[in-house]
Amino acid sequence: CSVCSEPIMPEPGRDETVRVVALDKNFHMKCYKCEDCGKPLSIEADDNGCFPLDGHVLCRKCHTARA
């Protein structure tokens, strides 16, 4: 995971895991958050999703503030 540096592995008792890929980086679902404010990001293409800027994973509000 690009945030916590832990491997993305299935939880005990499970055969599969879910990971998020954004900007060629891999994330646990729980680690997929705005780099500035820490708001959890949605994997859907909506207002709560990722608004990347200069290689950073940001929420819409933080993207607008940086732009």
Rank of each mutant, 00 (worst) to 15 (best):
V3F: 13
R60E: 15
V18Q: 15
V18M: 11
R14Q: 05
C4P: 01
V20P: 07
S5T: 02
V3K: 10
A65S: 12
K61Y: 11
E35I: 05
V3L: 10
Y32C: 04
L53H: 09
A65R: 12
L58Y: 12
P10I: 07
P40I: 03
N48L: 09
F27R: 03
I8V: 03
C59I: 00
C59Y: 00
N26F: 04
N48R: 08
G49P: 12
Y32N: 00
G49M: 07
N48G: 12
G13E: 10
C50Q: 03
R66V: 09
D36A: 05
P10A: 15
H28Y: 01
E44C: 06
C4L: 00
E16F: 02
A45F: 06
K39T: 12
N26R: 09
P12A: 14
G49Q: 14
D36G: 09
C59M: 00
D15V: 05
K39A: 12
G13T: 13
A45H: 15
V3A: 06
E44D: 07
K39F: 04
K61W: 11
V18I: 09
S2M: 02
L23R: 08
G49E: 08
R66D: 04
P40D: 13
D24C: 02
L53M: 12
H56D: 02
T64P: 06
F27G: 01
T17C: 15
V18K: 15
V57K: 04
K30A: 09
Y32Q: 02
P7R: 11
C62I: 02
C34P: 04
K39L: 10
E44L: 04
K39R: 09
C37L: 00
H28P: 01
S2V: 06
C50S: 10
D47K: 09
H63M: 09
L53E: 06
V21E: 15
A65C: 12
F27D: 02
S5H: 03
N26G: 04
R60H: 09
K25T: 05
T17F: 07
V3W: 03
H28N: 03
L23E: 15
D36Y: 04
V21W: 10
C59D: 03
P7F: 07
F51Y: 14
P7S: 14
D47R: 10
A45I: 11
G49A: 11
C34Q: 01
P10S: 10
A45T: 10
R19D: 10
R60P: 04
L23M: 08
R60F: 14
E11N: 14
T17M: 14
M9Y: 06
C1D: 03
A67R: 13
P10C: 09
L53K: 09
N26K: 10
D15H: 09
R60S: 11
V57Q: 07
V18L: 13
E6L: 08
L58Q: 03
L23D: 09
V20L: 15
P52K: 09
H28W: 00
C4E: 01
D36N: 09
C34N: 04
H56G: 04
E6S: 11
D15F: 05
P52D: 14
E16Q: 05
M9Q: 05
F27S: 02
G38D: 12
D46G: 12
D15N: 08
R19L: 09
V21F: 05
L23W: 05
V20C: 08
M29S: 14
K30C: 07
G55R: 07
L58D: 02
C34Y: 01
D47V: 07
L58A: 03
K61R: 06
H28A: 00
L58E: 02
N48V: 06
E35R: 06
R19M: 02
L53W: 12
I8N: 04
G13L: 09
R14Y: 10
H56W: 03
D47N: 14
H28Q: 00
G49L: 06
C37P: 00
V57G: 03
D47S: 10
D47A: 09
E16R: 07
C31E: 01
P40C: 08
A45Y: 06
G49S: 09
A45Q: 14
C59R: 00
C31S: 01
T17G: 15
D46Y: 05
H63F: 12
E35T: 09
I43H: 10
S42Q: 09
E16Y: 02
G13S: 11
L41W: 02
E6W: 04
H28S: 00
K39S: 11
A65F: 15
C50Y: 06
E11I: 11
G38V: 09
K39D: 10
E11S: 13
G49H: 09
V20F: 04
R14H: 11
C4I: 00
T64D: 15
H63N: 14
V3I: 07
V21Q: 11
S2I: 02
P7W: 03
I8M: 07
